[in-house]
Design a protein around this nucleic acid. Structure first.
Length: 122
DNA sequence: GTTATGACGCCGT
DNA sequence: AACGGCGCCATAA
């Protein structure tokens, strides 16, 4: 049995994370807001950590507000996350960060364009 | 009831 | 741009 019953917030976050499209990412804060609990970004992270390894949720599509992957005790999960993201077309810059301008999920966009990497700036 | 902890985030230096 | 400080929500001790 789960060490803890799923709360309404847990279910809401699960629903949000499940809707993040392939090849896009959402931030912890964004998940919290969409789940109806703005400011609970930290909670979102803690909740993800509790997910069973067999979870079907696309947990790897949740990144921090800086476009980076948040570290945890074991770096193996971190490499797994990056691997999964790259496999669906999400690219990382030299500093290991994702260009959110290109890959951040917009839940309100009717149809999101496939990210074009031609948008180099600078 | 308090205090510590954490896959976070914003703001000021 | 990087860092430290502080606030935030929920859990665990």
């Amino acid at each position: 049995m789960p060490r803890r019953e799923a709360t309404a917030l847990d279910r809401a976050m699960a629903r949000i994370v499940a809707s993040i499209p392939r090849g896009r990412v959402a931030t912890y804060g964004q998940v919290a807001v969409l789940a109806g609990s703005a400011g609970a970004a930290r909670r979102a992270g803690s909740w993800l950590r509790e997910l069973p390894p067999a979870s079907k949720l696309p947990w790897h599509r949740v990144v921090n507000a800086g476009g980076g992957l948040s570290p945890r005790g074991d770096g193996s999960a971190l490499r797994e996350q990056r691997l999964r993201l790259e496999r669906e077309g999400v690219s990382f810059d030299a500093r290991g960060r994702i260009r959110l301008a290109d890959f951040l999920w917009d839940p309100f966009a009717r149809r999101s364009r496939s990210p074009m990497r031609s948008s180099r700036r600078k």
